[in-house]
Design a binder for these strands. Structure first.
Lengths: 167, 167
DNA sequence: AACTTCGTTCATTTTCATTTGAACAAAAAC
DNA sequence: GTTTTTGTTCAAATGAAAATGAACGAAGTT
């Protein structure tokens, strides 16, 4: 190994490391990359704001990962950028309001899939209408209708979920 | 290339292939392997039951994949095994009731994570109590409490989701 | 009993998303 | 205007998860 560059936050205490791992597992379930879990997790257990270099130092990840992870978390509304004193460097804190987090996830990760799904099903229904064999056409219509209903129901449920998690 | 073994369901029509792709995308969002989407998708657009060999033939996947995929789908309650005539071979049909599908997913994929999460947080709260610095202890307690509440809310919301999708 | 059929298992290969790190740009600081 | 600091980008390396396919066991058939 070569020499450490600056070693901002040397060895993170055990509890912090475990919380980070907790979030790593958590985001894996959501289909997000590990680095995002690490970054959000460390921000979540940190008392003050952290900079990109703090994250790189504490988590032992590359600057590239940290940069991309922070961007994704910003888009999701899971972190906020804060001004620290007069520093040029950007600092971040975790957004810890569950309703807000869920809202961001729904908006960025779920809704787009529902939308594109609806489009695809719509096109398939067009194609199914042109099917010649009547029995087959009827069957396809039933299945595609069902799919459409699934997507509609999904869309209706999302706001309820967000609301229930808010209280 | 060598000779095809039997070529059960040669070229699947365009609509079928597109529905399969639709499900491939769908299960990817849920964090499940592609083969599971292909298998479920083909069963979903098929009028009659299909056997493992039908799936291997139509989808061009290996027997191993098909076997594992079918097992996972059975555990999820997403497919049913049916008897076809007097055949020894096992045949399958897709379960198309959304409520049931969501129920299986929640039971197999979500609940276990919530459970193990609770255990981990519990242990961390024990560790946090033994923290010496009072300010730090207080902060950790706040964050861990919050996490606990997240999990509790998640657990409460799941049945509601399932119910709302049933209608 | 030998043979065939059906399906599972699991060590290896393949695939594909993620991570890395060097090059780069933008904006201060000097 | 040069140098340093801060952060982004993207081609290539890495690694984790999935697919493959050969070997195997369990029934069923002859």
């Amino acid at each position: 190994m070569s020499q450490q560059p600056a070693d901002n936050n040397p060895t993170p205490p055990a509890i912090e490391r475990q919380v980070v791992d907790f979030f790593v597992d958590g985001v894996k379930v959501l289909g997000l990359p590990k680095s995002i879990g690490e970054i959000y997790g460390l921000l979540f257990v940190s008392r003050g704001p952290l900079s990109l270099d703090d994250l790189v130092g504490s988590l032992g990840i590359s600057k590239g990962s940290a940069s991309q992870g922070l961007r994704a978390l910003k888009v999701l509304g899971a972190i906020r950028e804060v001004q620290v004193g007069t520093e040029r460097r950007a600092y971040f804190v975790a957004a810890v309001d569950l309703k807000r987090l869920v809202g961001g996830f729904i908006r960025e990760q779920i809704r787009p899939h529902l939308e594109s799904g609806r489009v695809k099903i719509g096109k398939l229904e067009e194609a199914a209408k042109r099917e010649t064999d009547p029995a087959r056409r009827e069957f396809l219509r039933d299945r595609l209708d069902r799919l459409e209903r699934w997507l509609k129901n999904g869309g209706r449920v999302l706001p309820v979920i967000q609301k229930l998690l808010g209280e």
